[in-house]
Design a protein around this nucleic acid. Structure first.
Length: 270
DNA sequence: ATATGCACCTGTGTGC
DNA sequence: TGCACACAGGTGCATA
């Protein structure tokens, strides 16, 4: 479900409630996530105070007062919600954190592709494997050239490779390429140098625009406060197969690239 | 190293 | 109404 803007929306709604709060109880109802929840998960979390909530790409990092970090990834269907204490447990509520004040923090994930890990930051393998966050560090032209030189991979698939840039998923890869006027199937190594800057600008702009709208709600994404994301109405191509391109009116096309639905305007994107 | 296909899960929508 | 199937915002591994 969530890409960078949805994760950032989650971070922003959680921060005032969770930052500075102490975890007084950890209830685990399902350990089988993308990786099994560590046996000492509860023990390492109970009694800890959350000192900061950061984000890298699609990962949320809860800094704890003993120097460890609680790492959370929402996978395709995960969410972190704030609920009043005493709320009955819903289906797929796998982990419930009770804080010393305010609402409880609930990790819900029907498909269980999400991830929760605790460790020192340099011990978390997931973090080591991901590239820079495009909102914090705009890639330079030289970086891009190095990353794409000789690559025949479609540029859209490359944008979704978290090792290069962290945070772009299927929706925003489609949207960024539309804004930049680049065909999603174009081999990454065959993009003219002059097009990189517009592409990077498009990536950053679409991510920022989506964050302002609270992310994209397709069917069920909601921020931690239950509000949906309003970027859905701003999507130019994603999910709009057959509908007119907002720029030229030609029907938006859909094809599959790298096993993912890919939307584009064949007139505006070359 | 690079590219591809599939596996991991459950829920929902569609077509018969 | 019931059923089978395709598909979904992601990642990681096995295979060429």
């Amino acid at each position: 479900m969530p890409e960078l803007p949805e994760v950032e929306t989650t971070r922003r709604t959680l921060r005032p409630h969770v930052c500075g709060a102490r975890v007084v109880a950890v209830a685990v109802h399902e350990r089988r996530l993308r990786r099994p929840l560590a046996p000492d998960f509860e023990e390492r979390l109970r009694g800890r105070t959350v000192t900061a909530i950061e984000r890298r790409g699609k990962y949320l990092l809860f800094a704890l007062d003993d120097g460890a970090t609680l790492l959370a990834h929402l996978g395709m269907s995960g969410s972190l919600a704030l609920v009043p204490p005493g709320t009955p447990r819903a289906p797929h509520d796998h982990v419930v954190l009770t804080l010393d004040r305010g609402p409880q923090l609930v990790f819900n994930d029907p498909r269980r592709f999400g991830l929760l890990q605790i460790g020192r930051r340099d011990e978390l393998p997931a973090l080591r494997a991901i590239g820079p966050d495009p909102l914090s560090a705009a890639p330079t032209l030289d970086t891009w050239r190095a990353l794409t030189r000789g690559r025949r991979l479609p540029i859209k698939s490359l944008l979704m490779d978290q090792r290069l840039l962290a945070g772009i998923g299927n929706i925003y890869a489609n949207e960024a390429l539309y804004r930049a006027g680049i065909h999603p199937a174009r081999p990454a190594g065959r993009i003219a140098r002059a097009r990189f800057e517009p592409l990077v600008d498009s990536i950053r702009a679409v991510l920022r625009d989506a964050i302002v709208q609270g992310g994209t709600t397709l069917r069920d994404f909601a921020g931690s406060d239950g509000r949906p994301g309003y970027f859905s109405g701003c999507l130019d191509v994603y999910g709009r197969a057959g509908e007119p391109c907002r720029r030229c009116g030609a029907p938006v096309r859909m094809r599959v690239l790298g096993q993912r639905a890919t939307y584009y305007c064949s007139a505006c994107q070359r």
